[in-house]
């Protein structure tokens, strides 16, 4: 009962959070995002609610006159055993990306620069921020109606148009359940920690059209919800510019991911992948869940 109470409280908070950040209308008819956010931390009791975070996941969305930007990052939980809060790394990464978007040097056509610079920014902090994280950043360049993306690790995005997935990010893994990651290990641990440079990010750029649906999410979603189901939900909201309806869909996806992740019988994408790697597993993978859902309106 207790946990149910927590869940509903968080759901309503998440809802409010989503409504609060509606995109303001623009004078000039150029493509822009209508975007909403929903998500859950894996463990409600252990994580404190803070805007821009769900457990170890972090997200941001922001806009300039020239571009709309969305990003998600998933802090690698393994650092907890070293006494390091994994959420700090991902949250810092996203916050810095958001600040960089508003700096004069921001180039909407090079989202990978956002990741590179915010990674460099980590090294400039007085407070040492250690850990590692995956990250995915999407920039809609308004002038050219083109989406520029950079993705490192197993967070990702899918773009749905006319009931089909037209673009999706590629998962980058070293080996099973070990994604590419930006990392800053504690001094002395450098050699036995996986660390990928921001330049190894997978970058894509493609034109988008009015009505396209874009889902950006962390592995908590992609590991638990089969793509087919995601597609079924997403194709319902093509061309939708009502943020309330979008929010409902985002909530659906997040809730679906959360329930599937705790379903021990379900053959989740994660379990299927595990089997491919000769690991016998069933059920979902409990994880922090972040869903950023956007449609493109002109």
């Amino acid at each position: 009962m207790q946990s149910l109470c927590w869940t509903t409280r968080f759901l309503s908070r998440a809802l409010r959070n989503g409504f609060a950040t509606l995109v303001e209308p623009h004078v000039k008819p150029r493509p822009r995002f209508v975007s909403v956010v929903c998500g859950f931390p894996k463990d409600f009791l252990e994580s404190k609610y803070k805007l821009g975070k769900f457990g170890d996941d972090a997200w941001f969305k922001t806009q300039t006159p020239n571009a709309d930007v969305i990003g998600v990052a998933d802090g690698v939980g393994g650092w907890r055993s070293y006494g390091i809060d994994p959420g700090e790394f991902s949250s810092f990464l996203m916050k810095t990306c958001e600040r960089l978007v508003h700096c004069s040097g921001f180039n909407p056509q090079r989202p990978v620069n956002l990741l590179t610079y915010s990674y460099c920014e980590l090294l400039e902090q007085k407070k040492p921020i250690l850990g590692s994280s995956t990250a995915c950043v999407l920039v809609l360049h308004r002038e050219t109606s083109t989406l520029y993306t950079a993705n490192i690790g197993d967070s990702g995005f899918i773009v749905v148009r006319k009931g089909e997935i037209v673009h999706r990010s590629e998962e980058q893994q070293h080996y099973f359940n070990t994604p590419f990651q930006l990392s800053l290990p504690p001094p002395g641990h450098g050699h036995n920690v996986l660390s990928d440079s921001p330049e190894s990010a997978d970058t894509l750029s493609f034109p988008v059209k009015e009505g396209d649906v874009i889902l950006v999410a962390t592995d908590g979603v992609f590991d638990n919800v089969p793509v087919k189901i995601l597609l079924d939900v997403l194709k319902e909201i093509e061309g939708e510019n009502d943020p309330v309806k979008l929010q409902m869909t985002a909530n659906t996806i997040a809730l679906m991911a959360r329930s599937l992740s705790f379903d021990s019988e379900f053959m989740s994408p994660f379990a299927i992948n595990a089997r491919r790697n000769n690991i016998n597993a069933t059920g979902g993978k409990p994880d922090d869940i972040t869903v950023v859902l956007a449609t493109i309106v002109a």
Partner: peptide
Amino acid sequence: GSDYSISYTALNITGRPCKYPDYGDFPE
């Protein structure tokens, strides 16, 4: 801060204050 950075640098004085009224050693 260093010139290429956005932490503790002069440019942070521009724009709307983002930390006030908090008190602390903020990189912003």
